[in-house]
Amino acid sequence: MSALSLTAKDFASDQDVRWCPGCGDYAILNQMRKVCAKLEARRENTVFVSGIGCSSRFPYYMDTYGFHSIHGRAPAVATGVKIANPDLDVWMVTGDGDGLSIGGNHLMHVLRRNVNLKILLFNNRIYGLTKGQYSPTSEEGKKTNSSPMGSIDLPLSPVSVALSSEASFVARCIDIDKNLGEVLERAAAHKGSAFVEIYQDCNIFNHKAFEYATDRAVKEEHIIRLEHGKPLIFGKDRDKGIRLHDHKPEVVQLRSGIKEDDLLFHDEHDESLAFLLSRMSHPDFPEPMGVFYSIGDDCYEDLLTKQIQDAEAARGKADLNALFNSGDTYTIEA
């Protein structure tokens, strides 16, 4: 079978998908399979690595190579895979608990190293698999089994974390939004660590956490779709925009003396702007969707391979006897 003929179905494994009916993960899985087919990915060359949590069951449902590892450690496992074989296309699937709590350290380091991985962080703002405790992205005051009087932790912004970790590609999208496939394609095309936060609905423990961003009636008022080089305009009628005032973003009404040129223009190469956008959150601001930041940079595993090539060129490909005989040797005569 030629790779060209693969369809989304060909990327489905023979395993029954065991997520709860109505879970946002289904939409992401379907989109991922479509993107693999569209990009003519080779199944044998594709590896999905995950940690622990609902999202991390993802690899079982893709007919590619897959590794369901341990809680929080997928970035490290995936890094090892890429170091050992840089030619593989490696996707990493994690969640808000897996990626930002128990595995927060690894996420930071895999991003700063710019290992050529595509990282999908399913953010449902709750611990699903352990039955509904608050997560590092849960809003302050969240009432759950483990926080009956409301959580007292401030939530993290995954996009801010990724940007602060020197990520070379950072994006956000929503499980059931039209831009998901597009963002996944952009991530796949990026050379280096691509970080994608995906708002994902846990319809059992945190249903409608992102309703403001998914309800057809209101969502365009609450999200802003980022386009490189374009002004930051949003709203169903595209009548609102984001302007910088006193170094801070503010929402302004267009057509009331404010022109498009007065607005902020998106620039994917501007990390300060990207960070500023990552701080905009509901309900004070529309939440940006799309690619926040994208720059080209060398990948860790390529630099490592280059060091080996350089060392071999400079010192000659060494053999074992040369190794054993390095240093001070001496001979004991018979």
Partner: peptide, 21 residues
């Protein structure tokens, strides 16, 4: 290929990833 990991756990996990690959 040597990899100085961010912690002990990452080090062993990367080694496991390398074995898988």
């Amino acid at each position: 290929k040597t990899f100085q990991a961010e912690d002990e756990i990452a080090a062993v996990c990367a080694a496991i990833g390398a074995g898988f690959a």
